[in-house]
């Protein structure tokens, strides 16, 4: 077994772990963690599977490099929405008391 295939299999397991976490966990921040684990799993499958014969392949590597940068932007956007949601939940209570 080459390390490419091994890490592709790890990627499948990570994807399943993240997906199960996304379904089972209610906390928003932890769901963002689970979503990131799914992304990492998909990246590992992409690169690992292309390199299962042991020869490096630049095309999936470049695509994954793009993917990592997009993933951090998606994470930041998700966190911004989570913070906004949290602020509105907290802010809603005192307003109700005033009214």
């Amino acid at each position: 077994m080459t390390s490419g295939l091994l890490f592709a299999l790890v990627g499948v397991a990570l994807f399943a772990l993240g997906l199960a976490g996304l379904v089972l966990i209610g906390d928003v921040l932890r769901r963002i963690l689970a979503f990131n684990l799914m992304g990492s799993g998909a990246f590992l499958v992409l690169v690992g599977l292309a390199q299962r014969n042991g020869v490096p392949d630049a095309v999936p590597q470049a695509m994954v490099l793009t993917g990592i940068v997009v993933a951090v932007a998606a994470t930041a956007l998700a966190l911004a929405l989570a913070r906004r949601l949290d602020a509105q939940r907290e802010g809603a209570l005192p307003e109700d008391e005033d009214g």
Binding site: L9, V12, A16, A20, L24, L49
Partner: peptide, 20 residues
């Protein structure tokens, strides 16, 4: 149920990757 589904997913997809 989710645990069983996730395990089935890993076994099936992993098997497919190995036999590719």
């Amino acid at each position: 149920a989710v645990f069983c589904l996730a395990c089935a997913f890993v076994v099936l997809t992993g098997g497919a990757l190995i036999e590719l």
